[in-house]
Structure formats: structure tokens, C-alpha cells
Design a protein around this nucleic acid. Structure first.
Length: 514
RNA sequence: GGCGGCGUAGCUCAGUGGUAGAGCAAGCGGCUCAUAAUCGCUGUGUCGGCGGUUCGAAUCCGCCCGCCGCUACCA
């Protein structure tokens, strides 16, 4: 069996925290890509999940008076709940405490140990007793812990090390021969500079706490959480358990990540795979941070905004549209409520929602709610059809370039073109003209406008699945287009005689709530 | 300190050698089917500063100013 599946992943999220809009940003973007590829008729596997090992989870659990596993069980539903509200269409949700993950992880570790890629070494560094953790020498200020401002001690710990340094040349070769392995380009440059500066071996086990995957040949050690976590991308698709499934899915086409975890994905992960003798992912794409007031969003800055708050006001579509449409995916982008509200009203309520509303109002009052049989197309209809084709091409290009904003701008331009088409054809004037010619023309205009809306419902379905369903319901169409993209967009596919049902506004205008 | 990036209309940004662009916001006009909506028109910019290369630079080079990222295990 060879690879036949488009496979993309989000990071697995660390369960010491509940989701904020930064996590949701990554996940929404990945979902947009997954839905687009499904719409193209591709077999898609979209993976997300949770990372549940490590010291911080143990600490968070202890603070809550729970065992780590119980804590994780308690937090995971908080994540799934947000993904459900956001219409995240993941095909699988992996938790790193699952047997299907830990068993293959141990097996691979044993393989690396047996073949000499792992050795027992000694780690020495500044250690804060109060924190119970090691620091980097650069983090220590005047010999004091940066958090407790108390003296640190030099402590030694025996750890197992992964021979990361041995893969330095092969990693550099990877970045050079496959320039888009890491994207955007600025991130690739960072990674390349980092690796060229020289790699140290990676300490991959801990003995100071016990919440992790045990090292199989020395159970006093647990695995460093990143070495465990990264492997979710292969264990979730059958590595070590279902070889046929693994081969048809792996390697991943895209790992979508935030820029904070670039090194793990662009350096450690490919090195581990090289050691394991497995194929490498095709692309690692690191997007930027959302910033609030010019600062990285975080709980400590009190800038961590709950997705629920925004979902209550904007719904899944308003939420998804804003984060996909505003900003450049690879760069940091400023989040602001005002910008989100402005975008919602300008694009979704005014341009798109009102287009549906005005068109169906006319079909309802002029043709009793039945899509009329169109007459001969004029130049205006030909032009509108061209605009639809351009929107589809723009969507393709935007996805290909990992530029959701460009993709959605292209699609929205069809809504604007349709509004313009209606204004120029002025069906409300035609309706007042009793001649058969005018009636025929009116039918053509309203058919064409309705067909354009049908196309918009398809083109917007990856970004705004719920809105797409609402629009299609009003058009009297099935909620989901099941035919693949080129076919579904044949101009004139909408059947005359279809009964439309003008309903509630698809996107009601919103007033600022502060 | 080293390496890298950014600084373009009020706002968010696109634009890598050839007369400065989009969307939003603002002003004016049209239309009335529609969610005070839609459509058209309008302006605006020393393209961070200084110097250089070039017939010609926002776009290439140098210096300066400002902001940011990376400089290893913090999942």
C-alpha cells in the first residue's frame, strides 16, 4: 500500500491549560485546509489531540488535588467542546496517554537505544530547589532563580541522550534540498542558522518526576515530553499497530504549528524520524502569534481571550472568517474586537448576507419562491460566470500558498460582483414591466444571481461550514455538496424549479457590545 | 553581541527596477429588491531617515533611527 491520503495535523495541545484563541487560530486554519482538500475529492486525514505527559501537567494536577490522568480526563472535554463549537472536522483526536500511543513510543525508543542512537549521559545545570527544575545558564540572573530570586545550585542528573548532533549534516541537507520543508522562508532561515551553529545531543529522559512514558530498559526514567509528544503524528495513523494504514497516510503533508514550537518540529522531529528510518513530513508550516495590544497573548498578560466569548457573539462562521481573513497566516497578527466586528458587518452581513436576503426576497415575490427558468445569457451573465471561475481559481491559489486571507478575499469578490450584477440588471424595474421580454429577462437575472449564491455556498464551505449549510437550506439544496469541486462548480448547475425558502438573516448585523 | 525580519494612505496590509495599490474608515452622488443595505465617484501618501548604484528605486547597496524574531530542551 502506498500513500493515498492527504494528511495534516495540528499540534497536540498541552493539557495544563484550557484553550484560548491562539490555539483556536491554529486549529481553524488547519480545519479550513482539511475541508478544502475534502471538497476537492481527496481522501483526507485531519489529526488533532492532546499532550498529557510532563512535569507541568503533574503540577497542574497536584494543584487541583487530582492524579495527572484524572486531571487530563477532566481537561480534555474542555478542548473537544471548543472544537465542536468551532466546527472542527478532525478525523481523529489522539491523547498521548492512550495505549495506542505509548506502546509504539516505547518500542521506537528501544529501537533507538539498541541501535546506538541513545546513550546514558550526565546533565549538569543550574537548578532551583523551589521550582524543582533546571534552568538555562542564560536565564540565571546574578546566580538567582528568575522566579524565586533565590540562589540556584549546580545539579547533575543522569539522563539518556539522543544523538541529535549526529544528524546535523543530514538536517542541513534536508533544508537545502527541500527549501519548502520549513515555511515561511524566514522560519526556514532561522532553523538553518540554528542547525549550522551546531547541535548538541538532546536529553530525552527525566528522573526528577514520574509523569511520562517510562523508558523501557530503565523504568526509573520517563521520557522527555517532547520526544513522546512528537510521535503522536505517527502513532495516530497506525505506526507500530497497523502498517497498511500507516503507509497509506504517512508522511504528513502538513504539520501546522505555531512559531513557538518550530524547533521541535523542524529539527528534533525530522532527526528522530531519520534515526527511526521513517519518511519525513513534507511541510512544516509555522504561523505567527496573535497579539493583543502589541503583546503576545497569554494568561499572565490577561490577554488570553476565551473562544467561547467570541463564539457567543459571532458564531462559528464569524469567528472562523475573521481569523482566516484578517492578517497574514505566517506572520503575527493583531487581534482586536473592533476589527473583528467591522469585518463581520462589512463582509458577512452587508456583502454576503444581504446578497442572499435581497435575491431570495425577489425570487419569493416575483416567482413565488421558485427558481425560474433562465433565458438566453447576455454579456452580463457571461461576465458573472467568469467572476465565479476567478473566485474558484483564487481559492485554489490561496490554499496552495497557505494564504487563507487571499483565498477568502477571492471568494468574497464573487459576492461583490453579484451585488453589482444585480444593481446593473435592476430586476425590480424589470418586475414592473409586463412585457414577456421583461419577464424573461427577470427570470434570467434572478436565476443567475441565485446560481452565484449557490456557488458561494460551495466556495465558502471550507471556511464557513455552518453558514454554507444555512445558505443552502434557504436555496432548497442539500446541506452539504457531495460532489468534488470542479463538478460542483459547473455554472448553471442549479435546477430551475427549485423551491427556495427565505429565512432568517444568514448573518444578522451586529452592534458593538464592548 | 551575532544572525534574520519589518517600518508603504487615518486603520489592516499587498506590491522586489519603469508614471504608488486593495479592503476598511471618511466625503459626495445614484438606486430602492435587500440586513440604514447595495452600486459609482473622490481624495489623501516626503513608500522610516541620509547617501550611493542606475537612464530610472518603495523595489538593489551602505550607514543611521525605531520595532520585532531567533540565539536549545520553559510541552
Amino acid at each position: 500500500m502506498s500513500k493515498d491520503t492527504f494528511y495534516l495535523t495540528t499540534p497536540i495541545y498541552y493539557v495544563n491549560d484550557v484553550p484560548h484563541i491562539g490555539h483556536a487560530y491554529t486549529t481553524v486554519a488547519a480545519d479550513f485546509l482539511a475541508r478544502y482538500h475534502r471538497l476537492r475529492g481527496e481522501r483526507v486525514h485531519f489529526l488533532t489531540g492532546t499532550d498529557e505527559h510532563g512535569e507541568k501537567v503533574a503540577l497542574a494536577a497536584a494543584a487541583a488535588g487530582l492524579e495527572p490522568q484524572a486531571w487530563a480526563d477532566h481537561v480534555v472535554p474542555r478542548w473537544k467542546e471548543v472544537w465542536e463549537r468551532l466546527e472542527i472536522s478532525y478525523d481523529d483526536f489522539i491523547r498521548t496517554t492512550e495505549e495506542r500511543h505509548t506502546a509504539p513510543v516505547q518500542k521506537l525508543a528501544q529501537q533507538l537505544y539498541d541501535q546506538g542512537d541513545v546513550y546514558l549521559g550526565e546533565y549538569e545545570g543550574p537548578y532551583c530547589v523551589a521550582c524543582e527544575s533546571f534552568y538555562q545558564p542564560s536565564e540565571i540572573v546574578d546566580g538567582l532563580c528568575p522566579i524565586h530570586e533565590t540562589p540556584v545550585v549546580m545539579l547533575k542528573e543522569h539522563n539518556y541522550f539522543f544523538r541529535l548532533s549526529a544528524y546535523q549534516d543530514r538536517l542541513i541537507e534536508l533544508y537545502e534540498t527541500q527549501p519548502d520543508f520549513v515555511a515561511p522562508e524566514s522560519r526556514r532561515n532561522e532553523v538553518l542558522a540554528f542547525v549550522r551553529a551546531g547541535l548538541q545531543d538532546l536529553s530525552m529522559s527525566r528522573t526528577s518526576f514520574g509523569w511520562g512514558v517510562p523508558i523501557p530498559w530503565d523504568p526509573a526514567h520517563v521520557m522527555y515530553v517532547w520526544v513522546d509528544a512528537l510521535q503522536n503524528y505517527i502513532t495516530a495513523v497506525g505506526f507500530g499497530s497497523d502498517q497498511e494504514r500507516f503507509e497509506r497516510t504517512w508522511p504528513a503533508d502538513y504539520h501546522i504549528i505555531g512559531k513557538d514550537i518550530l524547533r521541535q518540529h523542524a529539527v528534533i522531529w525530522p532527526a528522530l524520524l531519520m534515526a527511526a528510518g521513517l519518511p519525513l513530513p513534507r511541510h512544516v508550516f509555522a504561523h505567527g502569534y496573535l497579539t493583543v495590544g502589541g503583546k503576545k497573548m497569554s494568561k499572565t498578560n490577561l490577554t488570553g481571550i476565551s473562544p467561547h466569548t467570541l463564539l457567543d457573539e459571532f458564531g462559528s462562521d464569524g469567528y472562523r472568517y475573521h481569523f482566516l481573513r484578517d492578517g497574514t497566516f505566517g506572520q503575527d497578527g493583531a487581534f482586536s474586537y473592533e476589527a473583528m466586528l467591522a469585518r463581520y458587518n462589512a463582509d458577512l452581513a452587508n456583502d454576503l448576507g444581504n446578497l442572499v436576503s435581497r435575491t431570495l426576497a425577489m425570487v419569493t415575490s416575483y416567482f413565488d419562491g421558485v427558481v425560474p427558468v433562465p433565458g438566453e445569457a447576455t454579456e452580463a451573465e457571461v461576465l458573472l460566470g467568469q467572476k465565479a471561475a476567478e473566485a474558484a481559481a483564487g481559492l485554489d491559489r490561496g490554499v496552495e500558498a497557505l494564504d487563507p486571507a487571499g483565498a477568502l478575499e477571492a471568494v468574497m469578490s464573487l459576492a461583490r460582483a453579484t451585488n453589482l450584477y444585480i444593481n446593473e440588471a435592476a430586476p425590480w424595474k424589470l418586475a414592473k414591466d409586463p412585457s414577456p421580454e421583461a419577464r424573461q429577462r427577470l427570470a434570467t437575472v434572478l436565476y443567475s444571481a441565485t446560481e452565484a449564491i449557490r456557488q458561494l455556498s460551495v466556495l465558502f464551505s471550507p471556511a464557513m461550514p455552518a453558514a454554507s449549510r444555512r445558505i443552502r437550506a434557504q436555496l432548497g439544496l442539500p446541506g452539504v455538496e457531495t460532489r468534488p469541486l470542479p463538478v460542483a462548480l459547473a455554472w448553471g448547475d442549479l435546477a430551475a424549479g427549485t423551491k427556495v425558502e427565505r429565512g432568517e438573516a444568514v448573518f444578522p448585523r451586529l452592534e458593538a457590545q464592548g
